[in-house]
Amino acid sequence: MKRWLRQRVDATYERLLSKEISGAPTHVAVIQDGNRRYARRRGGNAHDGHRAGAETTERVLEWCQDIGVEELTLYTFSTENFERPAEENEALFDLLCKKLHEFADADRVHENGVSIRAIGETEMLPERVQNAVEYAEGRTYDYDRFVLNIALAYGGRSRLLEAARGVTADVDTGDLEPDEIDVEDIEHRLYDQPVRDVDLIIRPGGDERTSNFLPWHANGNEAAVFFCTPYWPEFSKTDFLRGIRTYEHREESWRRTRARRALALIGAVSEPELAEARSIVDRFRDSLPSSERPDAGDLESNDSNSRIAD
C-alpha cells in the first residue's frame, strides 16, 4: 500500500478508535520493547534504536494525559540488562541522563504537574544516572496531578523478595505480629512512594509476555494486557488506542461477570450477603445485556421472598 494511502487509513482508524473509547485506565504500564531490533532492521546500532524509542516515550506521555490516565510506568532498564555489552549500556545511560534532565526542565511537565519517580535498584546504576534521577525527582517532587514512574535496574521478583525480607525482619524483632501482616505491609516496602494498581500493560515488539513487570500491582489487580507487533519506536497512537480499547473490553467483561454472579446469589443468601449482591447488581446493571437486566421490582421481590423463606 502506498505511503500516503496508509497514512490516510491510519488517520481514519485513529479517529474511529477515539470515538469508541469512553474512559481511560488510571495506571498504564509499558514494556518498551524492540528498540534494538528496530535499529538493526534499519542498519543502525542499539543507540539509534534507544534514541528513536525515547521520542515515542514522549508522545505516549502526551497521549496518556490527553485521555485522562493518571499514572504511567515505563519499563526502561531491567536488572538483566546489565548483562548487555558495556558500550551499549553506557550509551543508554548517557541518553537516560539527558532525557531525565530534559523532562525535569520541560515546561509541559511543570504545567501538567507531572511527578517523575524512579523505581528499582537505582543504587546499581552509575553515579551520573543516580544524580539525574535525583535531579528529576527533586524538580517534580511536589506535583501529584500525573505520576511518571521510570523502572530502572528493575526486577519485579527481587522487589517482592526484599519486601518479604523486610516483613520477616520486623517479625523477628517483635515489631510486627504474623497475624497482623496485611497488604499495606507489603506495599509500603516495595517502593518509596505509593504505586497504584496497574489497569493495563502494553507490550510492543511482538513478544507476548509481561517479563516480571510489576507483578504485585498488575497480577493482583488482574490487569488487562495488550500485545502488539510494532517495535517501540514505531508504536503509534492507533496502537495506543487499541490498547485502551482492550482495557475497556476487559473492564466491561469484569463488570458483566460480577453482575451475573451477584444476580444469581439474590434470593439464595443471607441478609448481609443479599444487600451486597443487590448493591453489585445496581452498580453494574447497565453492563448486562438488556435481556438479563432485572428491574427494581424484581430485586425487591427476590428480597421479600428471601426474608419469607428465612
Rank of each mutant, 00 (worst) to 15 (best):
W4K: 15
R8V: 03
V9H: 15
A11S: 10
L16Y: 13
I21H: 11
P25F: 13
P25A: 13
A29K: 10
V30F: 11
G34K: 10
R36M: 13
G49E: 06
H50P: 04
E58N: 07
R59E: 01
V60K: 04
C64Q: 12
Q65N: 08
Q65R: 14
D66P: 04
I67W: 02
V69Y: 08
T73A: 13
S78N: 06
E80A: 00
E83A: 11
E83L: 11
P85L: 15
E90P: 01
L92G: 10
D94H: 09
C97T: 08
C97D: 11
K98R: 14
K99I: 04
L100Q: 11
S115C: 15
I116H: 12
T122F: 14
E123L: 09
M124I: 06
V129K: 12
E134K: 15
R139F: 01
T140F: 01
Y143R: 07
D144E: 04
F146P: 07
I150C: 10
I150P: 05
A151I: 00
A153R: 05
G156D: 00
G156F: 04
R159M: 01
L160I: 06
R165H: 01
T168I: 12
A169F: 02
D170I: 02
D170M: 05
D170V: 00
D172H: 02
D175E: 13
E177S: 06
E177H: 02
E177R: 00
E177C: 00
P178W: 03
I181K: 15
V183W: 08
D185K: 14
Y191V: 05
Y191G: 08
Q193C: 00
P194K: 09
D197P: 03
D197I: 01
P204S: 09
G206E: 12
G206Y: 04
S211C: 12
F213L: 07
L214T: 03
A218G: 05
G220Y: 08
N221S: 11
A223E: 06
F227E: 10
T229H: 14
T229F: 10
T229L: 15
W232A: 05
P233G: 10
P233V: 11
E234T: 03
H249E: 11
H249L: 10
S253L: 07
W254A: 14
R256K: 14
R256D: 02
R256M: 08
T257A: 13
A259G: 02
R260D: 00
R261L: 06
L265D: 06
G267D: 01
A268T: 12
V269N: 04
V269K: 09
E271T: 12
E271H: 14
A275M: 00
E276C: 04
S279E: 09
V281H: 02
D282Y: 00
F284E: 11
S287H: 05
L288K: 12
D303Q: 02
N305D: 12
S306Q: 07
